[in-house]
Amino acid sequence: MSDTGAEIRQRIRGLLVDLSGSERFADGVPDSASLRESGLPSTGLVSLLVAMEDAFGFEWDDDVEPEALRSIDSLARHVLALRN
């Protein structure tokens, strides 16, 4: 059974909580908001991308569009696209 977009977004939020040690950041960022503009440092984004590889069982392509890395929504769409 495959995850829905909502389930994937929730799992990404869980990864953000695991990485930060607090729910405060993950709960305060709207799904469509830029993670960088919301305060996620570049090292945090890299850690999130690595955690997503482990959690969702894929590897990021070197040529992934930067827009795919922008928000929780865009990250979830990317995971869904890989599963289709």
Score class of each variant (00 low, 15 high):
residue 1 M to L: 12
residue 2 S to C: 02
residue 2 S to I: 13
residue 4 T to P: 03
residue 6 A to R: 06
residue 6 A to T: 12
residue 11 R to E: 15
residue 11 R to D: 13
residue 12 I to W: 07
residue 14 G to I: 03
residue 20 S to E: 14
residue 20 S to C: 09
residue 22 S to Q: 07
residue 23 E to F: 07
residue 23 E to V: 10
residue 23 E to L: 03
residue 25 F to L: 10
residue 26 A to L: 06
residue 26 A to G: 02
residue 29 V to I: 15
residue 30 P to E: 10
residue 30 P to K: 01
residue 32 S to L: 10
residue 34 S to R: 03
residue 35 L to Y: 13
residue 35 L to I: 08
residue 36 R to T: 14
residue 36 R to V: 12
residue 37 E to D: 15
residue 42 S to C: 05
residue 46 V to T: 13
residue 46 V to R: 09
residue 47 S to W: 00
residue 48 L to W: 06
residue 49 L to Q: 08
residue 50 V to G: 02
residue 50 V to A: 10
residue 51 A to R: 03
residue 52 M to R: 00
residue 52 M to V: 01
residue 54 D to W: 02
residue 55 A to K: 07
residue 57 G to P: 03
residue 58 F to Y: 11
residue 58 F to C: 03
residue 59 E to L: 13
residue 60 W to D: 12
residue 61 D to R: 09
residue 61 D to I: 04
residue 62 D to P: 00
residue 63 D to V: 01
residue 63 D to I: 01
residue 64 V to L: 14
residue 65 E to M: 12
residue 65 E to K: 12
residue 66 P to W: 08
residue 67 E to G: 04
residue 70 R to C: 10
residue 70 R to S: 15
residue 70 R to H: 15
residue 72 I to L: 09
residue 73 D to K: 00
residue 74 S to Q: 15
residue 75 L to T: 01
residue 78 H to M: 09
residue 79 V to K: 05
residue 79 V to C: 02
residue 79 V to S: 02
residue 80 L to M: 14
residue 80 L to F: 08
residue 81 A to P: 00
residue 82 L to D: 11
residue 83 R to W: 08
residue 84 N to G: 14
residue 84 N to C: 13
